[in-house]
Design a protein around this nucleic acid. Structure first.
Lengths: 241, 241
DNA sequence: GCTGCGATCCTGTCTAGACCGGTATTGGTG
DNA sequence: CACCAATACCGGTCTAGACAGGATCGCAGC
């Protein structure tokens, strides 16, 4: 038996099952709840909790009377929420950055409103051209409160994932995000940095990310090349009500 | 005490709590699990199940040691999954249809593959220009197996919601969908029907909808005007792993 | 007035059972 | 051999407890 650490048993089981599911063929049958409970030496309800989590993530399909089946999503669950790096790696491309520009400055009115801080309060503004396999994919612009995350700019490397730094240094756990996706035409300056013709269409993605305490962590406004990027999403259980 | 019917208690509690949450102010504190369990006369685990469901839907935020708080989403959960009609009404516009065109024909190879049927098997192909407040918003194209949904075209009115008809007549309950959103430029014919300049950018939304038995119900390929439409989404709990 | 500690309430996690209604298999009967 | 009924197994739901650990607040002691 390998280490369980002192993490909750359910978490451990969830990890093991997730690995199992990802390594199984699509549509294959998982062991029954009772069998898993016995094998892990836990109550059936504990296994159920882990299973329900997998179901809500769309990894498995449960059929009463028959069993639980592996359900490989063709597209992954709300991929766009992840960090750019994870997103690209997941698509089989190598992520990178170029033309990094970061500074701390007073918040304009609109950004202050989104972040829930006073206009004029200091914010970190980070701007990067993100690349996939060396070719520009997105122009990423993000803003965070400098009071809440002091010295962020000095601890974050230019190729590093913002979310990784927030988690590691500031112990911030993102809980949810509100995103609006619209189509914008690239200004000459933007088009040049993304290496596409002027006024080409692009995805304009505005995002407000919130941590588990309900604080607004980040307000970002990114442009993704329309010719290279597609948003993929998996949606489950529409409108129960 | 009002009717509980013979539905599962958890379901009933979920409904009551959902109503309560929607009627509460954002950020307000819900009764504790123990209090609710006592009030409903059920075990605490039953209340927990309902609460977890609300949490996974992003309706509440749970803080260990403090309680459960109402969390009103600014934007609704994966709005785009809904029917066009519901989506537009939710945005405060009046939905409509024009230039309805529906026929039954043999499935081309690509559509047959998406629907999981044999190439050449009969499919219903429905094409509508959808309007919001009388102005074209989207060119909706959808395909369904005609063997699985016989006489669909004769029972569906031209302004009716496809999902409503599927639910009412064929008892189909949609469970999930895979969507891909990319940017396309409108062909002269498409642009004309949407009343925008030729080669204007639009959202190309490809969707495969699946029912609770795992059957593919619908494969759609719709174009939404880039100048009038924005996709709004709420994403919860990113990458636990 | 302020500090610190304990009581209390909260969610998080877990247990070891129970019964229900579907689903599939199998063995016996006609 | 065909069919049907018994049976074993599945997930769905639920119970009535338990303990841990975070958050909060009041009160005793300084």
């Amino acid at each position: 038996m390998f280490t369980t650490g002192d993490r909750p048993k359910g978490e451990h089981i969830k990890d093991v099952l997730t690995t199992l599911v990802l390594e199984s063929r699509d549509g294959s049958l998982l062991p029954s709840e009772r069998a898993l409970a016995e094998r892990f030496g836990v109550a059936r309800m504990t296994v159920r909790g882990a299973m329900e989590e997998l179901r809500s993530r769309g990894l498995v399909r449960r059929v009463s009377g028959r069993g639980t089946f592996v359900q490989h999503p063709t597209l992954t669950h709300s991929e766009i929420f992840r960090s750019f790096s994870d997103d690209m790696r997941n698509r089989g491309m190598t992520p990178g950055s170029r033309s990094y520009r970061a500074r701390t400055r007073p918040a304009p009115r609109d950004i202050a409103a989104k972040l829930g801080i006073e206009p004029g309060a200091p914010i970190h503004a980070i701007e990067r051209v993100r690349t996939a396999d060396g070719i520009p994919m997105a122009l990423e612009r993000t803003n965070l409160s400098a009071d809440r995350y002091p010295r962020l700019l000095s601890v974050m490397g230019r190729d590093e994932s913002l979310y990784d730094v927030l988690a590691r240094v500031f112990n911030v756990r993102l809980e949810s995000a509100e995103q609006t996706v619209s189509i914008a035409r690239l200004s000459p300056a933007e088009a040049k940095r993304l290496e596409v013709p002027e006024y080409d269409p692009a995805f304009l993605i505005e995002r407000v990310a919130v941590d588990n305490m309900g604080n607004v962590v980040e307000f970002g406004r990114s442009l993704y090349r329309g010719d290279r990027y597609a948003i993929q999403m998996h949606v489950s259980r529409p409108s129960e009500a």
